[in-house]
């Protein structure tokens, strides 16, 4: 997979390194900005409130009351 990407990047070695770095930074940014905040509520650290609705259906309570 990574070899395939490397082979398909244009330019010489230095240009490829530069493009790869940009790609990696972009992916990390997308993860931190969108993917992780979306995935994080599925973990239990968010459940700090006492709420009857939150007990059985923790992940699906409306309004994020978990």
């Amino acid at each position: 997979m990574y070899g395939w990407i490397w082979r398909h990047l244009p330019g010489n070695v230095w240009v490829r390194i530069l493009i790869s770095t940009v790609l990696v930074v972009g992916v990390v940014f997308l993860l931190f900005q969108y993917v992780f905040p979306w995935a994080e509520p599925m973990l239990p650290f968010n459940d700090v409130t006492v709420d009857g609705a939150a007990a059985p259906a923790a992940g699906t309570a409306p309004g994020g009351l978990v």
Partner: peptide, 9 residues
């Protein structure tokens, strides 16, 4: 207590 113990509020 347990998460369903809403009486605490």
């Amino acid at each position: 207590t347990l998460p369903g113990d809403t009486g605490v509020l």
